[in-house]
Design a protein around this nucleic acid. Structure first.
Length: 434
RNA sequence: GGAAGGGUGGCUGAGUUGGUUUAAAGCACCUGAUUCGAAAUCAGGCGUACGCUACAAACGUGCCGCGGGUUCGAAUCCCGCCCCUUCCGCCA
């Protein structure tokens, strides 16, 4: 959520910034300002009337104490009609407020000034690239073939259980998945100083709103209900990312300054309905309804957030370096930026079997956008309550990492050589078809 | 799921026959005085959001778990919900 005061006082700048995203959200600003002005004038009216009522009610108390019953009754009658007027005004105010809040929740964050202006993925600047494209002097297999031949994933039976997009990892595939999770958590907790948390895999609507998933992306989420009781439908939602629970851990709190920066890492499965995305480049494990992910979350003082964003990207990159995977880092341009983000770096890993880059991490600084939505604040050294900046990043997403790993490290003999860093948690050096 | 008890400002904790309690008091904290310095003591300050404003002060409004209701007036009465504690039941 943006700061309404910022919108009021610098509407041209806000509009320009929103326009750079290209989604037309700048057009909402005038509507919002108009609503806001009406709301405030109504609020002033309500408050003046309430002040009057408070004052006169006290007077009634005094009159009764002095046994001046008739005067008291007269005043009561007056206050009764004032009360009706207030109720009427309040109802209108509540309506206006609800409309304004709703609109506020649909306005995305403002891109940071350092973000490249652009319209689409085409305009995303390349920041850096790591690793060489290996020359394979044997025919490459893609992950689907590899997974089938080595019995790592059973797509057919996974689909039988839950429909397409729900993988069933089997044997060494399941062990590899688990080893990757273990390896990443280990790296982030012991070398990057994140505190591991293991959150609920369902969250309330408030949490989804807090991180900016709702209202815009409701259609992408799975709602749950208790048994067949439709009353409970939508009370809880499957997490689309561990960001949803973890970023909300301190919602509605005022954190002491010394508590910052807070760095959390968490594993969770991620559930995405992917409505409207089916069929487009979705072969194999590239786009799934369920995938595993290790997520990084930071709560930091505003003045440190961009520094923290850079280090978060490097934390995620280290995962890929250690796994000896070629990758590149790109910056999302204004037109490609996510709803709540002010600046985002994507990390894409090279998948030789696909002949393409796969996004395995997205690291964003949401600044105070989410903190406002979830009423998360910290007590600044000057004693003021301020909104901290929230950052989230994948460190990293598993299914695509799995793909890149098996495709990159496949050997001429049909086996997959496990990179050094992963061997202890996997308890194997090589995956073969035996 | 059932029963009982409880949710008050950073903490402790008064206040529940509705009305000078404008949420007492203490602790903690901040400023000043005293002191060589500190402790102790004394004086003052000290919740939060919003509105109005110069993003000042002052003032106003809301907030005593959340949401409704009764009333001229609700921390206080009524209804619904949430959470916590204890016990019981069920269950991995």
């Amino acid at each position: 959520m943006l700061d309404i005061k910022l919108i009021r006082e610098h509407s041209p700048r806000v509009k320009d910034s929103l326009a750079s995203r290209g989604a037309g959200d700048d057009l909402k600003v005038d509507e919002l300002l108009e609503l806001d002005a009406r709301r405030r004038s109504l609020l002033a009216e309500v408050e003046t009337s309430r002040a009057k009522r408070n004052q006169e009610s006290k007077a009634i108390g005094s009159l009764l104490k002095e046994k001046r019953h008739e005067e008291a009754e007269q005043l009561k009658r007056e206050m009764r009609s004032l009360g009706e007027k207030i109720a009427d005004l309040e109802a209108r105010l509540t309506g206006l407020k609800a409309t304004e809040d709703e609109l506020m929740l649909t306005i995305p964050n403002l891109p940071h000034e350092s973000v490249a202006r652009g319209a689409s993925t085409e305009d995303n600047p390349l920041i850096r690239e790591w690793g060489e494209q290996r020359s394979h002097d044997f025919p490459l297999e893609d992950h689907l073939t590899l997974c089938e031949r080595l019995k790592l994933v059973d797509f057919v039976r996974g689909a039988k259980l839950a429909g397409s997009g729900f993988p069933l990892y089997t044997g060494w595939g399941a062990r590899l998945e688990r080893a990757l999770i273990q390896y990443m958590l280990q790296l982030h907790t012991s070398e990057h100083r994140y505190v591991e948390v293991s959150p609920p895999f369902v969250v309330t609507r408030d949490c989804m709103e807090g991180v900016g998933q709702f209202p815009k992306f409701v259609d992408q989420a799975y709602a749950v209900q208790e048994g067949e009781d439709a009353e409970t439908l939508g009370k809880l939602w499957l997490v689309p990312t561990a960001e949803a629970p973890v970023a909300n851990i301190h919602r509605e709190e005022i954190l002491p300054y010394e508590a910052l920066p807070i760095r959390y890492c968490a594993y969770s499965p991620c559930f995405r309905a992917e409505a409207g995305a089916a069929g487009v480049g979705t072969r194999g494990m590239i786009r799934m309804h369920q995938f595993d992910k290790v997520e990084l979350i930071k709560v930091v003082a505003p003045e440190e957030s961009y520094e923290e964003l850079e280090s978060m990207v490097q934390d995620a990159e280290r995962v890929l370096k250690r796994l000896e995977l070629r990758y590149r880092v790109i910056m999302l341009c204004t037109g490609d930026l996510g709803f709540g983000s002010a600046k985002t770096y994507d990390i894409e890993v090279w998948a030789p079997g696909q002949g393409d880059w796969l996004e395995v991490s997205s690291c964003s600084n949401c600044e105070d956008f989410q903190a406002r939505r979830m009423a998360l604040r910290y007590k600044a050294p000057d004693k003021q309550n301020r909104f901290p900046h929230l950052l989230n990043g994948s460190g990293t997403a598993l299914a695509r990492l799995f793909v890149a790993l098996v495709e990159t490290h496949q050997q001429p003999d049909g086996s997959i050589l496990i990179p050094e860093a992963l061997r202890s948690s996997l308890q194997a050096d090589r995956l073969t078809s035996d």
